[in-house]
Simulated assay, not measured.
Amino acid sequence: MEENLKDQKMPEVDPLTNDKFVPEHEFDGIRELANNPPWWLTFIFIFSILFAYVYLAKYHFFSDGKVGLNEYEAELYAVQMQEEAAAGVEAVAAEGGGGISIETVKVDYSVPLTAQTDIDKGAKVFATNCAVCHLAEGQGLVGPNLTDEYWIHGGSFENIMTVINNGVIEKGMIAWKGQISDAQIHQVASFITTLQGTNPPNPKAPQGEKYVPAAE
């Protein structure tokens, strides 16, 4: 009896939906229908895959954006800088008899900072935002080597500040102006000046032209 049932030809089309059955896709009396998903579901699926690739490239390959942890650390550090700046103004006001606002304290962004506390803070900013492209010791990966004497966009401190502020979009370097505070940009640029001649392992080949500081 069972052999006779197996020998019976199974229908190729479902009488309820008029969809064809997938050949040999049957288990426990359940047969699979060869019906395609709706076009809108297929579109969402393809769009999700493309979005995932774009997101991965933007946030992890080119670092042209911040993941949640980067944003949290940047905001936390910005608040810390504001508090330190406010504390500095209060100290100056106390010494001078008051009557001073935070705008009165001017910072010269054309020269690197030399205080070790600023260099250490610049190192933290570098580790959080720059190491993904330049590596932890500045030897270069996607971005150029920051430890040699060769620079693509000039090696003066003013050049370094300009590149960090404005970026070089065509080469994957984003503009950090507005992403981190001016104080952080000043600190990380100052930290970068301390990397020259450190000779880290596996440095990237020199790029650009050798920078020779102008004689004073």
Rank of each mutant, 00 (worst) to 15 (best):
N70L: 05
L195W: 00
D28Y: 10
V79T: 12
N199G: 00
N36L: 06
L146R: 04
G167R: 03
V111T: 09
T17K: 00
K210R: 14
V92S: 03
D118L: 01
P213F: 15
Q116P: 00
L41H: 05
Q207R: 15
E103S: 10
A78C: 03
T194D: 00
D28T: 09
I185E: 04
C130Q: 06
D7M: 09
T128M: 12
A86G: 13
I44M: 03
V163T: 13
H153R: 14
A215G: 06
K20N: 10
V188F: 01
Q196R: 15
K210V: 11
T114L: 02
V132Y: 08
T194Y: 00
M173V: 14
F45S: 15
C133S: 02
T117D: 04
D108M: 07
Y109M: 04
T194C: 00
A34K: 04
D108W: 05
Q82R: 04
P206H: 06
V125E: 00
E12D: 11
P112C: 03
L135Y: 10
G29T: 02
T114D: 01
V142Y: 15
Y211P: 01
T104P: 03
S63N: 14
F51H: 08
N159S: 12
Q116R: 02
T128Q: 12
F21H: 01
G154E: 04
H186D: 06
M161T: 08
I49G: 01
N159W: 09
M1V: 11
M1K: 11
L16Y: 07
D148F: 07
K66P: 09
K66N: 10
E158F: 07
Q80H: 11
C133P: 03
L33V: 07
F47V: 07
K204P: 05
K58S: 14
A94G: 13
E32G: 02
K171G: 15
N202L: 07
Q184N: 11
I46N: 14
M10P: 07
I160W: 00
S63C: 12
F43Q: 10
Y53M: 15
E95L: 15
T114W: 00
T162F: 13
G98Y: 01
F61R: 15
I152H: 00
I49W: 04
N129M: 12
E32D: 08
L56Y: 15
G98H: 03
K124Q: 12
P203F: 06
G99V: 13
